[in-house]
Amino acid sequence: MSVAMREAFGRHLAEMGKTHPELVVLDADVSSSTKSAFFKKEFPERFYNVGVQEGNLAGMAAGLATCGFHPVINAFAIFLSLKSTDQIRNDICYNNLPVIIAGAYGGLSDSFDGASHQAIEDIAILRSLPNMEVIVPSDARQAELALEYALTRKNPVYIRLNRNAMPDIDTDRDEFFKARAVKIRSGKDVTIAANGITASAAVEAGKLLEAEGIDAEIFSVPFVKPLDSTSIFESAEKTGALVTVEEHLLAGGFYSAIAEDGLKRGLKAKVAPIAIEDKFGETGPYLDLLAKYGLDSKSIANVVKKLLNK
């Protein structure tokens, strides 16, 4: 089990600050939660707490980006994607500015605060914006790599961060920097493409399926935009079946991106999505919520078996 994604990201921010003098961090009075406080401790003169005003947070970042800085705005994903949408669209994306939008507590991971704090529509909103790239790391290592990658970009990048510690996925840095899907396991019967933290559940589902004679090829897919549909579709056409998994509403997220490309390219495979079906989350332990919304290993395995008529 790795460290919590927010912890890894916060510590890596401070590390990257040593080699990137253009890096500045803006906070909405939540640095103890997002762990951007590590950067604040190391570089207080490059850290700005603007208070609980996420729209202004994004607007200030845009201004700093026009002055040669590479800003990171780090706050809760739900508030960045909703309260800052105007400024992200018109100030950051319209002007194609190099601002890193680090949305902490993504998905259902702010589990005990319930629907008001759970970001399950953020990917749909932010991937629709021109010039924006969208990355949903699977673990702490991918969160660190996402930051390093984003610092090489001259355009806006959204990184969705989970609150909790999740099992590690073996990720090659060079492949990540090519925005590739990460093949975790080879197989011949079905392709499972898992976005974000669902990759670890997909790995466990693969073990359950193997015990029943089903050989799954499994991908961790951190990049929603740009999407490496080529790797996923080549696998799906080999196996004949594709299951997508995401910690997001079905509408507008990872599956929607897959479906858009699939229709354009004439994907020849049976497809079944696993996502949250048109409802808000609720309060409860995180792993229990994942299971309730079908994002645990047993649920994934059951969808695979249904798709394969097993």
Rank of each mutant, 00 (worst) to 15 (best):
I218S: 06
D172A: 15
F280D: 14
A272I: 05
A143D: 13
A193R: 02
S116D: 04
D113V: 13
K310F: 12
I123Q: 13
S84F: 11
S256R: 09
G187I: 09
A65I: 09
S138F: 03
I88E: 02
V24A: 00
F43C: 07
P285W: 06
E121V: 06
Y293N: 15
E277G: 08
V245L: 12
L287P: 10
M5P: 05
Y286N: 11
I169C: 02
N56H: 14
V52S: 02
R6K: 00
C93D: 11
D29E: 02
K238V: 09
D27A: 14
V182D: 15
S186V: 07
G294A: 14
M166R: 12
N95W: 13
G196S: 00
A75I: 01
A193S: 10
A179N: 15
L80C: 13
V134C: 09
S297Y: 04
S128T: 08
I218M: 10
D288I: 10
S2T: 11
D122N: 14
V245M: 10
K270E: 08
A28K: 11
A275W: 11
R89L: 04
E212N: 09
G206I: 10
A275E: 05
I100G: 00
K292C: 11
L151S: 10
F47T: 06
R6S: 00
P222L: 01
E133F: 13
